[in-house]
Amino acid sequence: MNPFEMVVLIVAITAVASIFRAKYGVRKDKWGNEQPLHAADPDAERLRDEVRTLKERIVVLERIVTDSDRNRSIALEREIDALRQRD
């Protein structure tokens, strides 16, 4: 094996290894230790739950807005106006 083939092989192995690290969520810290990206982070978990809840609420709001029943949308408009008048 000549030196150029060896260099190409090393680069290919490094590229494949970095793809696998990215796929399985492994990163290196500043000291070179590998850590999973999904480490136990309570703040990140709380944010994931909040995003999930907000997505569910958006689905409900989209359903309300795109509802084709005219009587229901008129009632919704009245409820919104009543809430505005309270403030």
Rank of each mutant, 00 (worst) to 15 (best):
R27W: 11
V11S: 05
R70V: 03
N33D: 14
R57D: 06
G25E: 06
I80K: 00
R57S: 15
T14Y: 07
T66N: 14
E56A: 12
D81C: 07
S73V: 01
V11L: 01
A17R: 00
T53S: 13
R27Y: 10
V59Q: 11
D49L: 14
Q85I: 07
M6L: 06
P3V: 10
P36I: 08
L47G: 02
R84I: 09
L37H: 07
A17C: 07
I80A: 02
R21Q: 07
V16N: 02
M1R: 02
S73Q: 03
V8H: 00
D49T: 02
A15H: 01
I64P: 01
E56S: 11
R86E: 10
D43I: 14
A15Y: 01
I13D: 05
T66E: 10
E34R: 03
H38K: 12
L83A: 14
R27N: 10
A40F: 11
S73G: 06
A17I: 08
I10V: 04
A12T: 06
M1G: 04
D87I: 15
W31C: 04
A82K: 02
F4E: 10
R57E: 10
K55H: 12
W31L: 14
R72M: 03
E45F: 09
Q35N: 14
N2F: 01
W31M: 13
L47R: 14
P36H: 05
K23Q: 13
R63F: 05
A12E: 10
R70G: 02
E5H: 05
P3M: 11
L54C: 00
Y24R: 08
V16M: 00
T14G: 03
G25K: 06
L54K: 09
S73H: 04
G32P: 05
M6C: 05
R78H: 12
P36G: 07
R72G: 05
R70N: 06
A15W: 04
E79D: 09
A82D: 12
R46E: 15
R86F: 14
I64K: 10
E45Q: 14
T53Q: 13
F4N: 04
A82W: 03
V51N: 05
A22W: 12
D69N: 14
V60A: 15
A44V: 12
A17W: 02
K55V: 13
G32K: 05
R27D: 08
V26N: 07
I80N: 07
I10P: 00
R27S: 14
V59T: 13
V11T: 07
R70Q: 10
N33G: 08
R21H: 07
D41P: 04
K28A: 08
R48W: 09
N33I: 02
A82V: 05
A12Y: 02
D69T: 06
M6Y: 10
A40M: 12
Q35M: 11
D87M: 15
L76S: 04
V59C: 08
G32W: 06
E62V: 04
V11W: 06
V16H: 02
V8D: 03
I10H: 05
L9I: 04
R52A: 08
N71Y: 11
I10R: 08
A44S: 13
N71C: 06
I19P: 03
K23E: 09
I64V: 12
A82N: 08
H38N: 15
D49I: 04
V8P: 00
K30M: 05
T14H: 04
L54E: 09
R27E: 09
L9Y: 06
L83E: 11
Y24L: 09
I19L: 10
L83V: 05
M1V: 11
R52T: 12
F20K: 04
M1T: 09
E50C: 03
D49S: 13
